[in-house]
């Protein structure tokens, strides 16, 4: 009986997660008419780290929405466990709907916070990664990158790195606002690159950051003053 109960529960959770995923993507499209622009890369089923600017909680949802379903299935957002472990609804959305890789951003932990991320890469998953480490609420387009992206690239050098620029989502729902306003958003995928053995950490992070900024300059058709 227990076995059947567990089986039924798993399928109910899966069905709920699938439905919720569809609803979230639909809501994102209604609000932002989001469009993925594959400028420098083709949507291929290659193992990749999609690294993006981070200004809103909806960032990974937007990238996830524009990924073709077959790629979406194997692409997992990396998110902070301090946010996504709080409350059952967030747990459900973080774990079951988006299949997130949750990392402990707390300082002073003895374990390597990137261990679950490496594990996900080893099992063949692609990742959505925010190298700024936290949401950017400043006027600067990007915060300095944390070293996480470098360590992932160095230890898993075969994985392609794809810069992804998310435009306008920070205007849809700025920090501290409750009601989102409808604005058109775009998600632009830049040219993939890989880690060159022996790269210096600072230079590597600078290069990754520059690639993302260059992408944003091309996307930004309008200066929003």
């Amino acid at each position: 009986m227990n076995g059947f109960g567990g089986w039924a529960k798993t399928w109910i959770v899966r069905f709920a997660a699938h439905t919720t995923a569809g609803l979230i993507a639909l809501f994102a499209r209604l609000l932002t008419a989001v469009r993925g622009i594959w400028q420098g890369a083709d949507p291929l089923e290659v193992q990749r780290i999609y690294y993006a600017n981070h200004a809103s909680h909806g960032d990974s949802v937007l990238i996830w929405t524009v990924l073709p379903p077959r790629i979406r299935r194997n692409t997992r957002p990396v998110a902070g466990s301090d946010y996504w472990e709080r409350g059952r609804l967030r747990q459900f959305i973080g774990r079951c709907v988006f299949n997130s890789v949750l990392v402990d951003r707390g300082k002073g932990g003895k374990v390597d916070p990137l261990a679950p991320v490496r594990q996900a890469l080893d099992s063949g998953d692609s990742l959505i990664f925010f190298p700024e480490g936290t949401r950017n609420t400043t006027d600067a387009p990007l915060l300095p990158f944390k070293s996480g992206l470098f360590h992932l690239a160095r230890t898993r050098p075969s994985v392609e790195l794809v810069p992804v620029w998310i435009e306008n989502l920070n205007r849809v729902m700025p920090k501290g606002e409750v009601v989102p306003i409808p604005l058109i958003c775009t998600v632009t995928f830049g040219t993939p690159f890989t880690y060159q053995p022996g790269s210096d950490k600072k230079a590597f992070l600078q290069r990754a950051s520059d690639a993302l900024l260059a992408l944003s300059a091309g996307v930004r058709e309008v200066d929003h003053g």
């Binding site: 205007r171 606002e177 306003i181 409808p182 058109i184 309008v222 929003h224 003053g225």
Partner: peptide, 20 residues
């Protein structure tokens, strides 16, 4: 149409209620 229009306008966070 309004969504397209506002996307190209000069608004900032102070206009959030007005736009909502």
């Amino acid at each position: 149409a309004l969504r397209e229009f506002v996307t190209l306008t000069t608004t900032n966070q102070a206009d959030h209620w007005a736009l909502a």
